[in-house]
Amino acid sequence: MFARLPESGAEGVVVAIDDVAFEARAGDTVAAALLASGRASSRTSPVSGAARGPFCLMGVCFDCMVTIDGVPNQRACMVAIAAGMRITTQRGAPMPGEGVA
């Protein structure tokens, strides 16, 4: 769905997406890392259970909400990745701490 331009100069940064290591790049937001990892969907809707994924990538739509380091409902597009960050896709409306190992 998305591929890195071959001439991208950014260095690799390893994060965990649903407990699987993924090498993102410096400068990525969490949403960019999710899309780069091949995930179109990052949560399910708490209303119908339908799959949702990053849509606007500018903080408007809230469709890219994920759990980051144990904090649920974070806009993935507004958070810069950091080494070792734990990113968890969401099902419905999680409670704080849910999905944290």
Partner: peptide, 20 residues
């Protein structure tokens, strides 16, 4: 609302910030 439907600005932003 299907995953894989993105706005033009979103796609442009990915290219600019992440070379995606």
């Amino acid at each position: 609302t299907l995953p894989g439907v993105l706005t033009a600005g979103a796609v442009q932003g990915l290219l600019k910030s992440s070379a995606l």
